[in-house]
Amino acid sequence: MSTGLKGWKDIPIGGMILEAGNSAEYETGGWRTFRPVMDKEKCKNCLFCWIYCPDSAIQVENEKIKEIDLKYCKGCGICAAECPAKAIEMVEEGKL
């Protein structure tokens, strides 16, 4: 079998995963139907979108929204729904 997957001698025993947080390598952005598009002009950096994001997809730097990481964003639209400044719009992927 050449599945590219490791054999039993080459993986840690007992199903242990030794690399903490390695799901970051697994991109769930492909699930998305609607993409959050942020209007930085309108954004007040209240960080509500960040604290309510289920997918740890909103990047904050120096207390300000840096970007929405589309590698992980599944397009649920909670950020857009909760943004007090209405700075995020959900746009259908194909129509961008």
Binding site: E25, T28, D55, A57, Y72, K74, G75
Partner: peptide, 8 residues
Amino acid sequence: AGGHRLCA
């Protein structure tokens, strides 16, 4: 970390 597979 992101990349978990809970529903959107």
